[in-house]
Design a protein around this nucleic acid. Structure first.
Lengths: 138, 138
DNA sequence: TTTGATATTGAAAATCAATTTCAATAAGCG
DNA sequence: CGCTTATTGAAATTGATTTTCAATATCAAA
């Protein structure tokens, strides 16, 4: 959770606050599962019935740009978004119910330096994602 | 590189060998970059001009099913495929030229057991991908 | 407040990737 | 060689995302 609320961040970056944005932001912020644009649309429309799907896409785009949400890559597809953790965090996904958890504290220094030497690559970034079953789904 | 050639593997799984398949298989097998279906189409058409894009999709589907190729997830998109390494391997991608390398020998046991205890998840799988600059692009 | 510039809206149209349909063709078994 | 049937490419279809556009709403400035 970021200290500064999302709506404030949007405003500080020159974006106006509208009903459509409020509905999308609230929806994504409350989610414990990654949501596709269409899922966001369906949920957010309950709060703001006039909402258009296009505004969902546009708002998600801005939230991603501000690093408030992140795209979730899964075997079934990569269209879903989840609220981004703060700092350097990775995802842990339940293969059954789709719940998303964050974790940090991965230390890949040792690994990356070995790989770097072995391949000659200068390593800049890493993606790490774990899949499993959450407590309820085991 | 798998011991048994891809065309043989296709045949052993009951698929027929055709010009379209040969062209797609050769193209993907020779690539050092991840290729999208459209890129495969453009390259493979040089070998087999009658090729249809649909056959590219269908052949890629079968190659993925036989674990001969794998999908590559990148910030810009997740439609590209690369020849799959054998055994448990991960990808290292050059952010500049797009070249793909494989590496293995990641030991995430320590990490996953800590995360498992901390979150209560039973961890089944992990995705690890490194990004950087290859020797030429540094 | 009110005003006015302009960012934002939703609907519709357009684009793009991927899938399905289908009649013609070709692979490969006997 | 002949026959069964998997495979083909073209065209149509689907589904997701983007663009266009006139109407509207936000918010800073008067």
């Amino acid at each position: 959770m970021t200290a500064i609320p999302w709506l404030t961040q949007l405003q500080e970056n020159g974006y106006r606050l509208t009903g459509a944005r409020r509905a999308v932001v609230e929806t994504v912020q409350q989610a414990t599962h990654a949501l596709t644009p269409l899922q966001v649309f369906d949920l957010a429309r309950k709060k703001y019935p006039a909402l258009g799907l296009v505004s969902v896409y546009r708002t998600l785009e801005k939230l991603e740009e501000l690093h408030l949400i992140q795209r979730v890559h899964q075997p079934q597809g990569c269209q879903a978004f989840i609220s981004a953790g703060s700092g350097h965090q990775h995802l842990l996904l339940c293969q059954n119910c789709g719940q998303v958890e964050f974790f940090e504290g991965d230390d890949l220094e040792a690994l990356t330096s070995v790989i770097s030497q072995r391949t000659g690559y200068q390593i800049k970034e890493h993606w790490l994602q774990l899949f499993g079953l959450c407590r309820n789904c085991q």
